[in-house]
């Protein structure tokens, strides 16, 4: 069995993903069918952001992955040069 911290982190991740999924589903799928005067529209950003935010998040993620890979490759190159 996993330790306490592992369990907390794991179920935390599950909870975060579930929260994001339900919020995004309400935002994208349910909101157009609800009357535009309804109070629930106060709790959601304009619809364009439903695409722009994931796009921005994906680009940021790609940027960080790229930076990380460059950093690791440069570091390993230095080490092999030293070893030679």
């Amino acid at each position: 069995m996993a330790t306490g911290t592992d369990q907390a982190v794991g179920f935390g991740l599950v909870a975060v993903s579930l929260i994001i999924f339900t919020y995004y589903t309400t935002w994208v799928i349910l909101l157009p069918f609800i009357d535009s005067q309804h109070v629930i529209h106060k709790y959601f950003l304009p619809r364009a952001y439903a695409v722009l935010l994931p796009l921005a998040a994906g680009l940021l993620l790609l940027l960080f992955v790229g930076l990380f890979i460059t950093y690791v490759m440069l570091k390993s190159q230095k080490i092999t040069k030293k070893a030679q």
């Binding site: 982190v9 794991g10 179920f11 991740l13 599950v14 993903s17 995004y24 994931p54 796009l55």
Partner: peptide, 20 residues
């Protein structure tokens, strides 16, 4: 975008569940 976000949520949830 919705498909992408749900796939991401599924991936995150799977990783979390396996960690737990």
């Amino acid at each position: 975008a919705y498909l992408l976000v749900s796939a991401g949520c599924y991936a995150l949830g799977t990783v979390g569940y396996r960690v737990a």
